[in-house]
Protein backbone atom coordinates (compact mmCIF):
# COMPACT_ATOMS: atom_id res chain seq x y z
CA UNK A 1 0.00 0.00 0.00
CA UNK A 2 1.63 3.26 -1.06
CA UNK A 3 1.86 6.03 1.46
CA UNK A 4 0.82 9.61 0.82
CA UNK A 5 4.44 10.52 0.39
CA UNK A 6 4.94 7.78 -2.24
CA UNK A 7 2.00 9.10 -4.19
CA UNK A 8 3.22 12.66 -3.96
CA UNK A 9 6.58 11.57 -5.29
CA UNK A 10 4.91 9.74 -8.14
CA UNK A 11 2.86 12.78 -9.10
CA UNK A 12 6.00 14.85 -9.17
CA UNK A 13 7.82 12.45 -11.44
CA UNK A 14 4.89 12.14 -13.84
CA UNK A 15 4.60 15.89 -13.93
CA UNK A 16 8.20 16.35 -14.98
CA UNK A 17 7.80 13.67 -17.64
CA UNK A 18 4.73 15.48 -18.85
CA UNK A 19 6.71 18.67 -19.13
CA UNK A 20 9.33 16.96 -21.26
CA UNK A 21 6.66 15.51 -23.52
CA UNK A 22 5.07 18.89 -23.89
CA UNK A 23 8.37 20.47 -24.85
CA UNK A 24 9.08 17.70 -27.34
CA UNK A 25 5.68 18.18 -28.83
CA UNK A 26 6.30 21.88 -29.30
CA UNK A 27 9.65 21.21 -30.93
CA UNK A 28 8.19 18.54 -33.21
CA UNK A 29 5.36 20.86 -34.20
CA UNK A 30 7.76 23.58 -35.24
CA UNK A 31 9.97 21.17 -37.16
CA UNK A 32 6.98 19.55 -38.75
CA UNK A 33 5.74 22.86 -40.08
CA UNK A 34 9.11 23.44 -41.68
CA UNK A 35 9.54 20.01 -43.19
CA UNK A 36 5.96 19.95 -44.38
CA UNK A 37 6.59 23.16 -46.23
CA UNK A 38 9.65 21.61 -47.81
CA UNK A 39 7.68 18.58 -48.98
CA UNK A 40 4.95 20.69 -50.50
CA UNK A 41 7.49 22.97 -52.19
CA UNK A 42 9.31 19.99 -53.67
CA UNK A 43 6.26 18.31 -55.13
CA UNK A 44 5.92 20.48 -58.26
CA UNK A 45 9.47 19.60 -59.28
CA UNK A 46 8.87 15.92 -58.72
CA UNK A 47 5.66 16.06 -60.70
CA UNK A 48 7.24 17.90 -63.61
CA UNK A 49 10.19 15.53 -63.69
CA UNK A 50 7.81 12.59 -63.67
CA UNK A 51 5.86 14.04 -66.58
CA UNK A 52 8.92 14.90 -68.61
CA UNK A 53 10.35 11.44 -68.12
CA UNK A 54 7.05 9.90 -69.18
CA UNK A 55 7.06 11.94 -72.37
CA UNK A 56 10.71 11.34 -73.15
CA UNK A 57 10.33 7.62 -72.62
CA UNK A 58 7.22 7.69 -74.77
CA UNK A 59 9.15 9.39 -77.56
CA UNK A 60 12.18 7.18 -77.25
CA UNK A 61 10.89 3.70 -76.74
CA UNK A 62 13.81 1.77 -78.14
CA UNK A 63 16.52 3.58 -76.33
CA UNK A 64 18.87 1.44 -74.33
CA UNK A 65 20.13 2.67 -71.02
CA UNK A 66 21.71 0.67 -68.21
CA UNK A 67 19.20 2.11 -65.76
CA UNK A 68 16.30 0.76 -67.78
CA UNK A 69 17.69 -2.76 -68.10
CA UNK A 70 15.31 -5.24 -66.55
CA UNK A 71 17.01 -8.31 -65.15
CA UNK A 72 15.81 -11.41 -63.42
CA UNK A 73 15.73 -10.26 -59.78
CA UNK A 74 18.22 -12.46 -58.00
CA UNK A 75 19.65 -9.93 -55.61
CA UNK A 76 17.35 -7.14 -54.60
CA UNK A 77 18.41 -4.05 -52.72
CA UNK A 78 16.24 -2.18 -50.26
CA UNK A 79 16.99 1.36 -49.21
CA UNK A 80 15.12 1.78 -45.94
CA UNK A 81 14.51 5.26 -44.58
CA UNK A 82 13.71 5.65 -40.89
CA UNK A 83 14.35 8.30 -38.29
CA UNK A 84 17.54 8.66 -36.30
CA UNK A 85 15.60 8.90 -33.10
CA UNK A 86 12.70 7.15 -31.50
CA UNK A 87 9.81 8.49 -29.45
CA UNK A 88 7.64 8.95 -32.46
CA UNK A 89 4.94 6.36 -32.03
CA UNK A 90 4.76 3.62 -34.59
CA UNK A 91 6.73 5.54 -37.18
CA UNK A 92 9.90 3.45 -37.20
CA UNK A 93 8.29 0.12 -36.42
CA UNK A 94 5.78 0.53 -39.24
CA UNK A 95 8.60 1.01 -41.71
CA UNK A 96 10.61 -1.88 -40.33
CA UNK A 97 7.62 -4.19 -40.30
CA UNK A 98 7.02 -3.43 -43.95
CA UNK A 99 10.70 -4.03 -44.63
CA UNK A 100 10.56 -7.43 -42.96
CA UNK A 101 7.55 -8.33 -45.05
CA UNK A 102 9.03 -7.08 -48.31
CA UNK A 103 12.45 -8.61 -47.92
CA UNK A 104 10.96 -12.03 -47.25
CA UNK A 105 9.87 -12.14 -50.91
CA UNK A 106 13.37 -12.51 -52.33
CA UNK A 107 16.04 -15.15 -51.94
CA UNK A 108 18.85 -12.65 -51.66
CA UNK A 109 18.51 -9.20 -50.29
CA UNK A 110 20.89 -6.30 -49.81
CA UNK A 111 20.05 -3.64 -47.26
CA UNK A 112 20.96 0.00 -47.14
CA UNK A 113 19.60 1.61 -43.98
CA UNK A 114 19.13 5.36 -43.86
CA UNK A 115 18.64 6.53 -40.31
CA UNK A 116 19.93 5.13 -37.05
CA UNK A 117 16.79 3.19 -36.19
CA UNK A 118 16.95 1.10 -39.35
CA UNK A 119 20.64 0.45 -38.89
CA UNK A 120 20.19 -0.71 -35.32
CA UNK A 121 17.26 -2.89 -36.27
CA UNK A 122 19.30 -4.72 -38.91
CA UNK A 123 22.33 -4.91 -36.67
CA UNK A 124 20.30 -6.40 -33.84
CA UNK A 125 18.99 -9.06 -36.19
CA UNK A 126 22.46 -9.56 -37.63
CA UNK A 127 21.21 -8.79 -41.12
CA UNK A 128 24.08 -7.74 -43.28
CA UNK A 129 23.97 -4.22 -44.64
CA UNK A 130 25.89 -2.96 -47.65
CA UNK A 131 26.12 0.65 -46.65
CA UNK A 132 24.52 2.99 -44.18
CA UNK A 133 23.61 6.63 -43.95
CA UNK A 134 23.24 7.94 -40.44
CA UNK A 135 22.53 11.36 -39.03
CA UNK A 136 21.39 13.17 -42.15
CA UNK A 137 20.31 16.02 -39.95
CA UNK A 138 17.28 18.23 -39.93
CA UNK A 139 17.58 19.88 -43.31
CA UNK A 140 17.91 17.21 -45.93
CA UNK A 141 19.90 18.42 -48.91
CA UNK A 142 19.69 17.08 -52.45
CA UNK A 143 23.41 16.25 -52.23
CA UNK A 144 22.69 13.71 -49.52
CA UNK A 145 20.13 12.04 -51.73
CA UNK A 146 22.64 12.06 -54.57
CA UNK A 147 25.18 10.25 -52.46
CA UNK A 148 22.75 7.44 -51.73
CA UNK A 149 21.58 7.36 -55.33
CA UNK A 150 25.07 7.21 -56.78
CA UNK A 151 25.84 4.26 -54.54
CA UNK A 152 22.87 2.18 -55.64
CA UNK A 153 23.18 3.21 -59.28
CA UNK A 154 26.78 2.07 -59.33
CA UNK A 155 25.87 -1.26 -57.79
CA UNK A 156 23.03 -1.61 -60.23
CA UNK A 157 25.10 -0.83 -63.28
CA UNK A 158 27.78 -3.25 -62.05
CA UNK A 159 24.98 -5.83 -61.99
CA UNK A 160 25.47 -6.47 -58.32
CA UNK A 161 21.86 -5.60 -57.66
CA UNK A 162 19.09 -6.64 -60.01
CA UNK A 163 16.51 -4.30 -58.58
CA UNK A 164 16.46 -1.50 -56.05
CA UNK A 165 13.51 -0.49 -53.93
CA UNK A 166 13.02 2.41 -51.60
CA UNK A 167 10.99 2.10 -48.42
CA UNK A 168 9.89 5.31 -46.77
CA UNK A 169 7.00 6.87 -44.99
CA UNK A 170 4.83 8.94 -47.25
CA UNK A 171 3.53 12.13 -45.72
CA UNK A 172 -0.19 12.17 -46.35
CA UNK A 173 -1.24 14.47 -43.56
CA UNK A 174 -0.34 15.19 -39.97
CA UNK A 175 -2.52 12.28 -38.87
CA UNK A 176 -1.70 9.86 -41.65
CA UNK A 177 1.67 8.62 -42.82
CA UNK A 178 1.82 5.63 -45.10
CA UNK A 179 4.79 3.28 -45.23
CA UNK A 180 5.46 3.01 -48.94
CA UNK A 181 7.60 0.89 -51.24
CA UNK A 182 8.72 2.34 -54.57
CA UNK A 183 10.87 0.77 -57.23
CA UNK A 184 13.93 2.88 -57.95
CA UNK A 185 15.74 0.64 -60.40
CA UNK A 186 15.22 -0.44 -63.07
CA UNK A 187 13.44 2.81 -63.78
CA UNK A 188 9.92 2.20 -64.93
CA UNK A 189 8.96 5.23 -66.96
CA UNK A 190 5.58 6.54 -65.91
CA UNK A 191 3.20 6.00 -68.77
CA UNK A 192 0.37 3.72 -67.71
CA UNK A 193 -1.48 6.40 -65.78
CA UNK A 194 -1.33 9.09 -68.40
CA UNK A 195 -0.81 6.88 -71.42
CA UNK A 196 -4.22 7.05 -73.04
CA UNK A 197 -4.80 10.72 -72.58
CA UNK A 198 -1.29 11.73 -73.47
CA UNK A 199 -1.22 9.59 -76.57
CA UNK A 200 -4.33 11.30 -77.84
CA UNK A 201 -2.99 14.74 -77.14
CA UNK A 202 0.27 13.80 -78.74
CA UNK A 203 -1.41 12.53 -81.87
CA UNK A 204 -3.45 15.69 -82.11
CA UNK A 205 -0.57 18.09 -81.96
CA UNK A 206 1.61 15.63 -83.86
CA UNK A 207 4.28 16.87 -81.58
CA UNK A 208 7.26 14.68 -81.97
CA UNK A 209 9.78 16.03 -79.58
CA UNK A 210 13.01 17.55 -80.65
CA UNK A 211 15.78 16.18 -78.50
CA UNK A 212 18.98 18.04 -78.04
CA UNK A 213 21.48 16.50 -78.50
CA UNK A 214 19.59 13.20 -78.80
CA UNK A 215 17.01 11.10 -77.02
CA UNK A 216 19.75 8.82 -75.70
CA UNK A 217 21.69 11.69 -74.23
CA UNK A 218 18.65 13.29 -72.71
CA UNK A 219 17.67 10.01 -71.10
CA UNK A 220 21.17 9.44 -69.84
CA UNK A 221 20.91 12.76 -68.10
CA UNK A 222 17.31 12.47 -67.03
CA UNK A 223 17.25 9.00 -65.53
CA UNK A 224 19.83 9.49 -62.76
CA UNK A 225 18.16 12.81 -62.00
CA UNK A 226 14.84 11.05 -61.70
CA UNK A 227 16.19 8.44 -59.32
CA UNK A 228 17.96 11.10 -57.28
CA UNK A 229 14.81 13.06 -56.99
CA UNK A 230 12.83 9.99 -55.93
CA UNK A 231 15.32 9.41 -53.14
CA UNK A 232 15.30 13.06 -52.17
CA UNK A 233 11.52 13.09 -52.13
CA UNK A 234 11.58 9.97 -49.96
CA UNK A 235 13.96 11.60 -47.53
CA UNK A 236 11.96 14.76 -47.04
CA UNK A 237 8.62 12.97 -46.94
CA UNK A 238 10.06 10.70 -44.30
CA UNK A 239 11.29 13.70 -42.32
CA UNK A 240 7.89 15.35 -42.38
CA UNK A 241 6.23 12.08 -41.41
CA UNK A 242 8.65 11.59 -38.56
CA UNK A 243 7.91 14.96 -37.07
CA UNK A 244 4.16 14.57 -37.40
CA UNK A 245 4.33 11.11 -35.88
CA UNK A 246 6.41 12.43 -33.02
CA UNK A 247 4.05 15.31 -32.49
CA UNK A 248 1.08 12.98 -32.30
CA UNK A 249 2.91 10.59 -29.99
CA UNK A 250 3.97 13.37 -27.67
CA UNK A 251 0.51 14.86 -27.68
CA UNK A 252 -0.89 11.51 -26.59
CA UNK A 253 1.80 11.12 -23.98
CA UNK A 254 1.08 14.57 -22.55
CA UNK A 255 -2.62 13.72 -22.36
CA UNK A 256 -2.15 10.38 -20.68
CA UNK A 257 0.31 11.90 -18.23
CA UNK A 258 -2.43 14.40 -17.31
CA UNK A 259 -4.91 11.59 -16.81
CA UNK A 260 -2.45 9.67 -14.68
CA UNK A 261 -1.80 12.72 -12.53
CA UNK A 262 -5.53 13.21 -11.97
CA UNK A 263 -5.98 9.60 -11.00
CA UNK A 264 -3.07 9.50 -8.61
CA UNK A 265 -4.05 12.84 -7.08
CA UNK A 266 -7.48 11.47 -6.36
CA UNK A 267 -5.99 8.36 -4.83
CA UNK A 268 -3.65 10.47 -2.73
CA UNK A 269 -6.41 12.71 -1.44
CA UNK A 270 -8.53 9.73 -0.52
CA UNK A 271 -5.65 8.21 1.35
CA UNK A 272 -4.88 11.44 3.16
CA UNK A 273 -8.49 11.82 4.26
CA UNK A 274 -8.54 8.24 5.40
CA UNK A 275 -5.41 8.83 7.45
CA UNK A 276 -6.89 11.95 9.07
CA UNK A 277 -10.06 10.06 9.92
CA UNK A 278 -7.99 7.28 11.41
CA UNK A 279 -5.97 9.71 13.52
CA UNK A 280 -9.11 11.48 14.69
CA UNK A 281 -10.61 8.17 15.71
CA UNK A 282 -7.43 7.41 17.62
CA UNK A 283 -7.55 10.73 19.45
CA UNK A 284 -11.23 10.42 20.24
CA UNK A 285 -10.68 6.84 21.38
CA UNK A 286 -7.74 7.91 23.54
CA UNK A 287 -9.71 10.75 25.11
CA UNK A 288 -12.61 8.45 25.81
CA UNK A 289 -10.29 5.98 27.51
CA UNK A 290 -8.96 8.72 29.84
CA UNK A 291 -12.35 9.61 31.20
Amino acid sequence: MPSVRDLRRKIKSVKSTQKICKAMKAVATAKMAKSQEQVLAARPYARQLHEVLGRVAGGARNVKNPLLAVRDPKKVCYVVITADRGLCGGFNSNILRLTTKETAKWPEVALVPVGRKARNFFRFRAWKTDNEYIGLGENVKPEQANEITNFVIKKYVDEEYDAVYLIYSKFKSVMVQIPTVVKLLPVEPPQAEEGAEEAKAEAKSKAAYLFEPSAEDVLEFLLPKYVQNSVFQGLIESKASEHSARMMAMDNATKSAGELIDRVTLQMNRLRQENITKELLDIVGGAAALE
Binding site: R55, S205, A207, A208, Y209, L210, E212, D217
Partner: peptide
Protein backbone atom coordinates in the same frame (compact mmCIF):
# COMPACT_ATOMS: atom_id res chain seq x y z
CA UNK B 1 6.06 31.34 -78.28
CA UNK B 2 4.92 28.40 -80.40
CA UNK B 3 8.31 26.84 -80.42
CA UNK B 4 8.32 23.23 -81.51
CA UNK B 5 8.26 20.70 -78.65
CA UNK B 6 11.78 20.25 -77.38
CA UNK B 7 13.67 18.68 -74.55
CA UNK B 8 17.25 19.53 -73.85
CA UNK B 9 19.76 19.47 -71.05
Amino acid sequence: PEHTPLITG
